[in-house]
């Protein structure tokens, strides 16, 4: 376990970063200090609340409430990161909720982990946090693909294809782009980098073999969650680009004559 003195000593490393900034006149000293202090306060608060939420004596519903709040907050973050995607807040909310049900259903339904505040909150956090980037990317890519290939999409509609069929090749391409980074990360895990969850467990004294098992489950969780959220967001965003009578909304925005 890390002592308070040990924790204080590690602040020296922030000192190194500040030193580099001063030496090279990067003017990032203030940013570095603010970021470090802010992170410490946030972690302390979260740690405090988590200690309350995952207390063994407390109802498990507090943990699920925490998960719901995380899903809500994540949807808000996704919407702010890609404001150009119509309705992303609600799409992301639906997508993260479904992903939470699916992934938590598998992990707890099949007894991979016991249902406990100590497992529910961190696993849901991993799921939401790690599928965020892919989710935002999926929404953005669908918009770009259909916008860039508008002529092709309209040619498909003109052949009598319904909106969903006409959008499918572009949704597929967007999903490939959104999921590829996560697949690459999964491939490189253990070789190029040691993931946080596993490293944390080993540092906390857990047997590396156990840490590896937990990490593998987390990676599967993230892959499953990212596939679920990106698919729902991509399909949802694509459907919002068409009218109910199978016209491309983007087309009427164009003063083409």
């Amino acid at each position: 376990m890390i002592t308070w003195v040990g924790l204080a000593a590690s602040v020296l490393l922030v000192g190194v970063a500040v030193g580099v900034s001063l030496l090279l006149r990067l003017r990032l000293e203030r940013e570095l200090i603010v970021a470090s202090v802010r992170m410490s306060i946030q972690l302390a608060l979260v740690g405090g609340v988590l200690a309350l939420v995952i207390d063994a004596d407390r109802s498990i519903w507090w943990s699920w409430l925490w998960v719901a709040a995380m899903v809500g907050y994540a949807s808000d973050v996704a919407a702010r990161r890609a404001p150009q995607v119509p309705g992303l807040r609600w799409l992301a909310l639906a997508a993260f909720s479904v992903a939470a049900v699916v992934t938590m259903g598998v992990l707890f339904g099949l007894d991979v982990f016991p249902v406990d505040g100590r497992t529910v909150v961190p696993l849901a956090g991993m799921m939401v946090g790690n599928s965020m980037t892919a989710t935002v990317l999926a929404g953005r890519r669908v918009l770009e693909e259909i916008g860039d290939k508008r002529d092709e999409v309209e040619a498909r509609l003109a052949l009598g294809q319904d909106a969903r069929t006409a959008a499918r090749p572009y949704v597929r391409s967007a999903l490939r782009s959104a999921l590829t980074p996560q697949i690459e990360t999964t491939k490189a895990t253990g070789l190029v980098f040691l993931p946080g969850a596993m490293t944390g467990l080993i540092l906390a004294g857990v047997d590396p073999a156990d840490a590896v098992k937990v990490q593998a489950v987390v990676m599967f969780l993230v892959l499953g969650a990212a596939a679920t959220t990106t698919t729902l967001v991509a399909l949802g965003a694509a459907s919002r680009l068409f009218t109910p009578d199978h016209r491309l909304r983007l087309a009427d925005a164009d003063p083409s004559t």
């Binding site: 002529d151 040619a155 003109a158 052949l159 009598g160 294809q161 090749p169 199978h246």
Partner: peptide, 28 residues
């Protein structure tokens, strides 16, 4: 609208061939 568009076909100003073979295009 889908039935209408099959009865009233359209060819656009710029060729809008889809990626793949001619057969893939006809199959669309």
């Amino acid at each position: 609208p889908l039935a209408l568009r099959r009865q009233v076909g359209m060819v656009f100003q710029r060729p809008t061939a889809f990626p793949g073979t001619v057969r893939d295009n006809l199959a669309a």
